[in-house]
């Protein structure tokens, strides 16, 4: 892992040419975390990419309002958060409804003030992969069918040969187990 190329406190050079280059550098570092944030609440792939694009557009436009003494990642996700809520308002009950407090909690989970975000995300993914290796075969099958094969709802239940209720419970349990496992591994590495 390469070290973060810039310190955020000296990143925002307001000259036009440098400003854009720095903006792109910051987006490359914080964009993946932003996309995870947006994807967590916007399930439609096209809408997710649209939100990502909109967030970057708004961030570029408002770059002058960014306080360089603060972290760029939360600022960027804050813009994304507002766009998510605006979209939610626009769609009303036809869209997925996520409470703003959930977005705040999610931001708390994603914020990694002491680390480069890209590095933090790779550590999280490495921990998750290790945790997946340790799953019992039955739970691994649930995860594989849901996430590797993309099955959902009744199709997933049929694939597993279980009832809907049992499938829901299994997913609930395996995600809780993976959450505990990942956070334990990250804590052991001093990441959390």
């Amino acid at each position: 892992m390469e070290p973060s190329p810039l310190n955020e406190s000296d990143r925002i050079d307001r000259t036009p040419q440098v400003g854009r280059a720095l903006f792109e550098a910051l987006v490359r570092e914080h964009g993946p975390r932003l996309r995870l944030f947006l994807g967590a609440v916007e399930r439609d792939p096209q809408a997710r990419e649209e939100l990502l694009q909109e967030t970057l557009l708004v961030a570029w436009r408002r770059l002058e309002s960014f306080d360089p003494d603060r972290s760029f990642g939360p600022w960027l996700r804050g813009i994304g958060r507002n766009l998510v809520l605006a979209r939610q308002r626009a769609l009303g009950r036809r869209g997925v409804i996520v409470d703003p407090s959930v977005l705040d909690q999610l931001e708390g989970l994603l914020d990694a003030p002491a680390q480069a975000e890209v590095e933090r995300m790779e550590l999280e993914l490495a921990a998750l992969r290790a945790c997946l290796e340790g799953l019992p075969a039955q739970q691994r099958a649930v995860v594989d069918q849901r996430y590797r094969e993309g099955r959902r709802g009744a199709e997933l239940a049929r694939g597993l040969g279980r009832s809907l209720e049992s499938t829901k419970k299994s997913l609930q349990r395996v995600r809780a187990r993976l959450h505990d496992c990942v956070t334990t591994k990250l804590a052991a590495q001093g990441v959390l």
Binding site: L36, A40, Q105, L106, L128, R146, L178
Partner: peptide
């Protein structure tokens, strides 16, 4: 809200890991 955020976080990581 906290549990829901944790579910969303793990779900997002699973989508990437797999």
């Amino acid at each position: 809200a906290r549990v829901q955020a944790e579910v969303l976080w793990v779900d997002g990581l699973l989508e990437r890991a797999l």
